[in-house]
Computed example of a mutant assay.
Amino acid sequence: MTRLTGTGRDTLNYPDRGATRRRPLPAGYHHLHHRTPIGHGREVFEAAGAAVREFRMHRATGASVRADGPAVPGARVEVGLGVGRLRITVPCEVIWVPDAPDRAGFAYGTRAGHPESGEESFLVELAEDGTVWFEVTAFSRPAAWYTRLGGPLVPVLQLGYARLLGRHLRRLAAAA
């Protein structure tokens, strides 16, 4: 696959790299946290983790994804959202992946040209009782005129997309 570099969109457009890994999230941004159960057991966890790392969860929602490969730190990702003339491509970079046997997923940060500025993590966790949880954590603020114009609607859309990801990941994990 062609590397997604050299496009003029290679720099992160926010200073708080890696901040979705810790709490509290940085001030000055809208914060999002969504957590939902998606199944039970190691098999569901493994299937869900693979679907997240390979961007199949995002693609299942109808988003297009161009990536350097699976989610590893430094990987460039471009996600296409919307339809027709309203479709936008948002450039991101994978910032971190969890390093634990019962956690899988990644966090990506926005690069120059993204309509938002911030970071979002998509994590799957296998709890001690066997419940498999999907969690989205994000901090963001507008970086384009149309997201500033969207004002309070943007966080509502972000939460709706997080919920949609959870529903599709539940289906993908159950099918494995």
Rank of each mutant, 00 (worst) to 15 (best):
E93L: 08
G130L: 05
F134H: 15
R103H: 14
T89P: 00
V94C: 01
G69Q: 08
A67P: 08
L123V: 15
F139T: 04
P98E: 10
H40M: 11
T36H: 12
A107P: 00
R85Y: 03
V132M: 04
D68G: 10
V79E: 10
S117A: 15
G80H: 06
G105Q: 05
V83T: 15
L81D: 08
V97L: 12
P98W: 06
P142H: 12
P101C: 04
G118M: 05
P70V: 11
A51V: 06
R111H: 07
P115R: 14
R85Q: 12
R42M: 06
L123N: 12
A75E: 09
A144M: 01
A75M: 09
W96R: 02
V52A: 12
P91W: 03
R85I: 11
A63I: 07
I38L: 15
A107W: 03
E116C: 07
P142R: 12
R87Q: 09
L86T: 08
G109D: 02
H40T: 13
V94K: 03
P142W: 09
A48P: 12
V97W: 05
P70H: 00
P70D: 11
V65F: 06
V44Q: 15
V79F: 07
F45D: 14
A143W: 01
H114V: 08
W96T: 04
E120S: 14
P115T: 13
P142F: 06
S64K: 06
E135A: 01
E46G: 06
H58G: 07
V77H: 06
V44D: 15
G130I: 07
V79G: 08
R53E: 14
I95G: 10
V97M: 13
R42P: 04
G113V: 01
E46W: 06
V83G: 13
L126H: 09
S121H: 09
A63V: 07
T36L: 11
H40N: 10
P115Q: 14
L86N: 03
G49V: 04
G62V: 02
C92M: 13
G82M: 13
P91L: 00
R56Y: 04
G39D: 10
Y108H: 12
F106K: 04
A143I: 04
P73Q: 01
V124M: 09
H40Y: 09
I38S: 11
P98A: 05
V94D: 03
D68T: 05
W133V: 03
S121R: 14
V65D: 11
T137Y: 00
W133F: 07
T110S: 04
T131I: 02
G82F: 07
A100G: 00
M57R: 13
T137F: 00
G105E: 02
R42L: 11
T131Q: 11
P101H: 03
P70S: 01
A127Q: 13
C92K: 06
P98K: 08
A107I: 01
A67E: 11
A107E: 02
V65I: 13
F55W: 15
A107S: 14
F122M: 10
V65N: 11
E93H: 04
G62M: 08
E128W: 00
G118D: 08
R141Q: 07
V65L: 11
F134Q: 13
